[in-house]
């Protein structure tokens, strides 16, 4: 058994939530939250935390040197820095349109990296 302390980000109150996990990292209990959203946030955060990743990639033939990109869906939190290494290797050719896939299925997560501006 072990416990994890989290701050819930579901709303501005920011409850201090304590999650108790068993030896297989399964959630045993969630305390300190004051609503249901806190419970589901804490469970997600302790079992498979995910984050949206945004960055830029180099673009050739545009008025700007880089175009912004995002992960089309959240990626596992522990892969953020590895994903950045992949994204930093990408160069795209203008024209680029919002929603264009600049890197498909990053690190086999099933998530595409897509452009978020035109260039």
């Amino acid at each position: 058994m072990k416990t994890k302390e989290l701050i819930c980000v579901s709303c501005p109150i920011g409850c201090a939530v304590t999650v108790t996990l068993d030896d297989n990292n399964e959630v045993v209990s969630v305390t300190g939250n004051t609503c249901k959203r806190g419970d589901s946030y804490a469970r997600q955060e302790c079992t498979h935390p995910e984050r949206m990743l945004t960055s830029t990639v180099k673009v050739i033939g545009s008025r700007l040197p880089v175009v912004p990109v995002k992960s089309a869906k959240p990626v596992p939190k522990e892969l953020l820095l590895d994903c950045m290494q992949e994204i930093n290797r990408v160069t795209v050719q203008a024209p680029v349109h919002i929603g264009d896939v600049v890197l498909a299925n990053i690190l086999n997560t099933g998530v595409d990296i897509v452009a978020t501006n035109n260039a």
Binding site: M52, T54, P68, I98, T116, N118
Partner: peptide
Amino acid sequence: EELSGPEYAA
């Protein structure tokens, strides 16, 4: 929806 700044502006 959760958009980036440039997407919201567009």
